[in-house]
């Protein structure tokens, strides 16, 4: 069977202004409608890889070699105008700290409708209705009430849902979630991960989930890439990576859970929850 990859990265190399490589020969691919997890510590190059895909590398860094192909388009050679047509429309992203991406002095509903009007050309009234619909789909109870709230009035989990709603406003094909659940409480993290899984099932949204936690990634991803020091040390299906880790680093990630997580008890007990 031929894989239908919506995004493929081959031999990606990101260097600093002085030519020091921070990301080395990274290759990965995501199937249309699939979910890929990128796991690594801070400084592993996982976030830089994502930012290369999004064309938003920090100042002073650049892609030096390799290709990033999205649905047949080579993203590395794209000009600003073409990026504008792609980013936010077909590829979208959410990050760790949702509050910093919202205007604190405008209600979250207004911010979403504004995006909808610009991105999809909806009328004011239609944008309002669509916003409420999106909020509801994001699992926000009482969407009409949330619509009128300012960012500071919402909890971290709710803000992240608002951000996901905004990211999905133009109905993108690919969503990149970079440590999007890291700052959240465990129960809220599970809610957001469940939401992402729902979106993938219901809308066929392709997901790239970036996290330092292997367990978070294995929750919803079918393929996993493990990065360390700018290099991919392991990649494969989630099942393979978890059951037959090849690299010592992956093994240490797994050991952390089996030695200290609730996995220790799962081996002997069936959870009665």
């Amino acid at each position: 069977m031929v894989r239908d990859d919506i995004l493929s990265v081959t031999g990606l190399r990101v260097v600093t202004r002085d030519g020091d490589p921070l990301v080395h020969d990274v290759s990965l691919a995501v199937e249309r409608g699939g979910a890929l997890g990128i796991v690594g510590e801070s400084g592993s190059g996982k976030s830089l890889t994502c930012r290369s895909i999004l064309g938003i590398l920090p100042p002073g860094l650049r892609v030096d070699a390799g290709t990033v192909t999205f649905d047949g388009i080579d993203l590395t050679g794209l000009d600003y105008r073409s990026w504008q047509g792609l980013r936010g429309n077909r590829i979208s992203a959410v990050f760790q700290d949702p509050a910093s991406y919202l205007n604190p002095s405008i209600t979250v509903g207004k911010q979403l409708s504004e995006v909808l009007r610009v991105k999809t050309g909806l009328s004011r009234r239609a944008a309002h209705a669509r916003s409420l619909e999106l909020f509801e789909q994001m699992g926000l109870r009482e969407p009409a009430h949330v619509y009128r709230q300012y960012p500071f009035e919402l909890s971290g989990g709710m803000l992240q849902r608002v951000l996901i709603a905004i990211a999905l406003s133009a109905d993108p094909e690919l969503l990149i979630a970079d440590e999007a659940t890291t700052a959240l409480d465990v129960t809220v993290q599970a809610e957001v991960l469940d939401l992402l899984e729902d979106l993938r099932r219901d809308r066929g949204l392709t997901l790239i989930l970036v996290s330092h936690d292997l367990a978070v990634v294995s929750q919803i991803c079918d393929h996993v890439v493990v990065m360390r020091d700018g290099v991919v040390v392991e990649s494969g299906t989630a099942d393979d990576v978890l059951k037959r880790p090849q690299h010592e680093y992956t093994r240490s990630l797994i050991e952390h859970h089996t030695a200290y997580g609730i996995e220790k008890f799962l081996a002997e007990e069936v959870l009665d929850v």
């Binding site: 465990v186 129960t187 993290q189 599970a190 809610e191 991960l193 936690d213 292997l214 367990a215 978070v216 294995s218 929750q219 978890l242 797994i254 859970h257 089996t258 997580g261 609730i262 996995e263 008890f265 799962l266 007990e269 069936v270 959870l271 009665d272 929850v273």
Partner: peptide, 24 residues
């Protein structure tokens, strides 16, 4: 972990991310 009683504890255990899914 195995036999939580309070609804919050049950959700907490059910929400814990595990490598194997934890059966929840």
């Amino acid at each position: 972990i195995a036999r939580p009683q309070h609804p919050y504890t049950r959700l907490l255990v059910g929400s814990a991310t595990t490598l194997t899914g934890g059966g929840v």
